Simulated scan of single mutants.
Amino acid sequence: MYDRNVDKKTLTFQVSGMLWQRSLVMRDLETQSLWSHLLGTAMQGKMKGSALEILPASMTTWGEWKQRHPQTTLLALPRTAKRFTESVWKNPAAFIYGITPHAGTEPIAVAMPLLQKQKLIQAKDKGEFYLFTFSDKGKRAQAFSRVLDDKKSSPPLVFQLSQEKGSMRDTLTQSTWDIVTGECTKGQLEGKQLKLLPGTVSFKRAWETFFPDGTMVK
């Protein structure tokens, strides 16, 4: 998901009908520039070289989201659209969950089968400390920073799955955290929140094409 405000302009996007590297190409109506949906950058036209700001987003079932956020309304959903259900993961080996470049960091991803199996995966890459989580309910993947409040002087937290379903504990204080929201719900750090990172579900082949030098967690 992206912020569509660029250089003080609010852009309106549509599907261009073209593919690049077998992936969707977007077009903005204001300048007719062409954009890569995975990179979020303009590849051709007046906006060439411009980049959209990446925003954190979640891919989950409507039921799981509605339970957590009962006041949510839908912006738009075509009547012909197929429902997103857990069946999309019948072939998880085709997918990864990746963190796209932001604020100077490099792309890093984890294979979906590994994330589904372990539920928690922690990684360090180029000075950044990452936590990937997976919830069976809604088949929801998330990514967080393990450094609280973005304080580089703070030690990165290390997490373990908790016996309480849908939660985890940090080994430093044994506080309990929600595996989906990254919020500490009980313990010394109650009320603290892990920073949610702008991750995305992608076909593994597409990710490797667009980010050939990115890190793949194993």
Rank of each mutant, 00 (worst) to 15 (best):
L29C: 03
L196Q: 10
T105S: 09
T61I: 03
S135I: 09
L196H: 11
A123P: 00
L52I: 00
Q32P: 02
G199Q: 05
K124N: 08
K139N: 09
E164T: 14
S167P: 01
N91V: 08
L38E: 13
T133Q: 05
I54L: 13
V201M: 15
G191L: 14
N5E: 10
V147M: 01
E208W: 04
T181Y: 07
C184R: 09
T60V: 08
K9D: 11
S175M: 02
T73D: 12
K152Q: 12
R68Q: 14
A206K: 13
L161G: 09
V110F: 00
S50D: 01
S162F: 06
M59K: 00
L197A: 09
T10H: 15
Q67A: 15
T73H: 11
T185I: 15
P78H: 05
W35K: 04
Q21V: 12
I179D: 06
I99G: 00
R68P: 06
P155L: 05
T171M: 09
L114S: 03
V15Q: 08
P107D: 00
Q142W: 00
L38M: 10
T185F: 14
W20K: 05
I96P: 01
G63C: 07
F203R: 08
C184L: 13
L115E: 01
S167L: 11
T12S: 14
